[in-house]
Amino acid sequence: MNPPLDISLWQLLLGLVFILVAQVTSLVYHLGLNRDISIGTLRTFAQLFLMGYVLSFIFGSDNVWLTLGVFGVMVVSASFIIKGRVREKSVPYILPTVLTMFASYFATAVFVSGVIVGVEPWWEPRYFLPLGGMVIGNSMSALAIAIERLFSELRQQKNMVETRLCLGANYREASQDIFRNAISAGMIPSINAMMGVGLVFIPGMMAGQVLAGADPLQAVRYQIVIMLMLVGSTALTSFVTIRIVRRRCFGKGEELLLGSG
């Protein structure tokens, strides 16, 4: 099997041709995106090189706490991204979200690296961090969609939720449909991804492994495990988080704390 071909610095800079195309398009059509494209390009270079150095350091250090520390930073960063997307001020949802994300992503990553792939030790950073990163990156989007849906439907359907409460429902019964809709909305993208994978796209990880010289059939096995892992972790995280956040949308008297939308 051939090792991957190295990309020299000059070859890497040649990749900027694509950015040039985007910049020219933005200029010609007055899209006003030139500044964002420049900043995005700089950040791509800086963030990925930084990550490369950090990963090289961690892979060489062989330290479980350092690995878990990086994992924790990834979870906290993901929670900030969710906070930026959801923009809800009246219900404190971030702390339970971070704790649930940490617990469920950790369990998923440990199961996949330690049990399915059989890495020893289970926290071997070369496996644990990329697997954890993929779980966090994908589930984060699902969770943001689910939380956003929960808040927006509770606001839109406030009259119905309160009517149910007044007719003897507890808060769970009053928001049952909304709870289901929120979790489904979060899960649909990862289920759709299972439908299209291999037909309409080659997933990033598999493409990476194949480019790196791995046997495509082994890459496929990894990819299948990843797809299953993403669906499972999305379901687990969405279910637990939405359950906790929904409770926080109701007060001690099970009254809905969100105003109508």
Binding site: N159, R164, C166, G168, N170, E173
Partner: peptide
Amino acid sequence: RRQVLYTTQLPAMMDGTVRANLLFPFSFES
């Protein structure tokens, strides 16, 4: 709330028949 029942200004109807709308509260635990 079962004993002191508040009715909202605008009626909230769920997507279903009149019968379903009249009877859904009977499915609540309380």
